[in-house]
């Protein structure tokens, strides 16, 4: 009885040592899960999830603080990817979060007063311009996050949806009619 107890204690101590040693020896800098979640997120940095950017949202998901269905730019597909990655159930968008059509910001140059507020708001530096100079959006870099909309004092920024062009046209999922709907 006593021997068994000692054996168990010794085993526990040994395993504890091994675990402690490996925790120090094989320490991984940062949280690899955060990186993986961040890789799935669309990087619009829009903050629509309630976190100030994609990385903070990824960290929140990794800590279990945030739900996976808060990212409208990622769309339904994004939720599926997160669910797969984390091994949790898929959840449809909750609350006001809804996927939107892709859009890029467009500055109406007639109205722009050159205040640079949008430039400061843009998380990916996709707006060029200087104080009192007209600003413009680099469409190819714009992620459509809409963060430039609220600071604009003259409401000169609009978000036109990206229309389908010949170069990015896609074949659609074939629809098979099982039964004709009268």
């Amino acid at each position: 009885m006593i021997t068994a107890l000692w054996v168990m204690i010794a085993l526990a101590a040994l395993l504890g040592l091994v675990l402690g040693f490996s925790a120090v020896r094989f320490k991984i800098e940062g949280n690899p899960l955060v990186e993986k979640i961040d890789a799935v997120l669309p990087q619009t940095q829009c903050g629509q999830c309630g976190y100030p950017g994609c990385k903070p949202y990824a960290e929140a998901i990794a800590k279990g603080e945030a739900d996976i269905n808060l990212c409208p730019p990622g769309g339904d597909d994004g939720i599926h990817k997160l669910a797969d990655l984390l091994g949790v159930e898929y959840k449809p968008f909750g609350g006001d979060a809804k996927p939107k059509a892709k859009a890029v910001a467009f500055i109406d140059e007639q109205t722009c007063i050159g205040c640079t507020l949008c430039i400061q708001a843009c998380p990916v530096d996709a707006i060029v311009g200087a104080a009192k100079q007209m600003h413009t959006v680099i469409a190819s870099e714009c992620t459509g996050c809409e963060l430039c909309l609220p600071p604009c004092p003259v409401d000169c920024i609009s978000m036109p949806a990206i229309e389908e062009r010949l170069t990015d046209w896609k074949w659609k999922h074939p629809v098979i009619t099982l039964r004709k709907i009268a």
Binding site: V124, E141, T143
Partner: peptide, 8 residues
């Protein structure tokens, strides 16, 4: 997305 992340 990768480019946006880099820029951000």
């Amino acid at each position: 997305a990768d480019k946006a992340r880099e820029r951000h």
